[in-house]
């Protein structure tokens, strides 16, 4: 009896396998991610409209949007965003150059690692904000001290990322370079740099994130323009909508710059045999 059942059941089972009806189509994925924030915003908007809250300290999305549009129409938003972005990019550039060069040197040679790394690790242990008073004394209260603070924030993740990645490059691949008699410079260019590129991109991204973090710290401590200034201004004048608008601007700028880094480096990382690649290919 069971044999009969099995033979009858089999065609059904075979049909059931190649029917991945559960799979959601491509376009649902970003929408899935938006569900939570958009849902919460809508709920808050409805709550304020229904009079459950006056929404003065936590402005509803419509008020934030109005403030955003007002600031943009007056050109204020653009001016402040540009000031902030300029500081981040200058500081990021400086931090990346220093972090990459020092990370490459200490990663490549054990001697320089022993010479330089302990000092840098000690400096890394200092919370970067602690430098602010000193930077202001040294460099004044204008751009230099802010850019320096950002550069310091960017420097350490980049330095650590490059140094660690170079030191963990597969010895077997380095040996291939040796077998082909590469000079030290060619070894760096043709083996070490391509090998560390994936970790380097990650280091750049965390460095950039910290850059955006430190620009707020720098601007909160005294600035006449910048998104951080909008934050302080909103606090002092009691305009929570302006604060949230500035926060939203930070989120947009931060996410966009991170996305640019990812897009710009993606062609260089096509070769990667990644765990996540399977998921993305679907």
């Amino acid at each position: 009896m069971s044999i009969v059942q099995m033979t009858i059941a089999r065609p059904e089972a075979a049909e059931a396998v190649p029917a991945p009806a559960q799979r959601r189509p491509h376009w649902t994925r970003p929408i899935l991610g938006l569900l939570l924030p958009v849902g919460l915003a809508l709920l808050w908007e409805l709550a304020v409209r229904a009079g459950l809250s006056n929404g003065r300290l936590v402005p509803p999305p419509s008020v934030i949007w109005e403030t955003f549009v007002e600031l943009a129409a007056a050109g204020e938003l653009q001016r402040h965003a540009l000031a902030t972005a300029t500081r981040v990019f200058t500081g990021f550039g400086l931090g990346v150059v220093c972090g990459t060069v020092l990370g490459a040197i200490t990663g490549y040679s054990t001697f320089t690692l022993r010479l330089i790394d302990p000092t840098l690790q000690a400096l890394r242990a200092i919370p970067s904000i602690a430098w602010v008073p000193l930077f202001i004394l040294w460099l004044g209260i204008y751009e230099s001290s802010k850019v320096t603070l950002i550069a310091v924030g960017v420097f350490f993740p980049v330095y650590l990322g490059v140094m660690g990645a170079i030191r963990s490059v597969d010895r077997k691949l380095v040996e291939v370079g040796r077998a082909f008699r590469l000079s030290p410079f060619a070894m760096v260019r043709r083996i070490l740099l391509p090998a560390v590129l994936p970790s380097y991109v990650l280091a750049l991204r965390s460095g950039l994130g910290l850059g955006w973090m430190f620009v707020v710290a720098a601007e909160l401590l005294g600035a006449s323009e910048g998104l951080g200034y909008l934050l302080i201004d909103g606090q002092q004048l009691g305009k929570p909508a302006q604060i949230v608008a500035a926060i939203v601007a930070f989120a947009i700028l931060g996410k966009t710059t991170d996305w640019i880094v990812v897009l710009a480096t993606a062609p260089l990382l096509k070769w990667e045999d990644r765990f996540s690649a399977r998921e993305e290919a679907n």
Binding site: K172, L173, E175, V176, A179, P194, W271, E272
Partner: peptide
């Protein structure tokens, strides 16, 4: 010339 036990191809080329 040298051929190793593993292919040791450079994955980025």
């Amino acid at each position: 010339g040298m051929v190793f036990q593993e292919p040791r191809l450079l994955p980025w080329l």
